[in-house]
Amino acid sequence: MSKHMIRHDPQRCISCKACEVHCQVKNRTAAAVKPGALITAGPDRLLDKVQVLSAFRPCFHCEKPWCVAVCPTGAMVKRAEDGFVHVVRALCVGCRACVGACPWKVPQWDESTGRVVKCDGCFDRVMQGCEPACVAGCTTHALSFSRPNENVRKVRLLYAKSLLVEKKSG
């Protein structure tokens, strides 16, 4: 994992896909290539409520990224300073080994260039003190960018509180 993480709050998410488009615009990708993807389903019945479900899938920037290990040319790199995993374009030969190796299928094949495109955490923006494009533009502030532990603390607290409320009312 990188030193940062992107958290997706499905309660606030409206499945609008602005995250995907902000990412595409900032990274100047082909229209068919989505480094960050919002997966949506529904409307379906879930827990007696009809809802549209969503999950955001950027890169996890794994601690031990399989894509890096499998890359034959050293094009896939994990940055020492912040842990973001990215493709060095000039070195990518388009073999797609990384696409196969990634358990989450995060690296995307760009037909128009014959190279792989991957979420790089917008490290150029982050180095400037900005948030990644998907987070910066998210329509409803459903995406947030933080250090893992900050977020874990927040989520743990919220979850524990919700359990207490359930106990009280139930």
């Binding site: 602005a18 615009v25 533009g137 329509t139 409803t140 502030h141």
Partner: peptide, 11 residues
């Protein structure tokens, strides 16, 4: 809006 911009605006 605190920085938010919808899908159309992003495009």
């Amino acid at each position: 809006i605190r920085g938010a911009l919808c899908t159309r605006g992003a495009a």
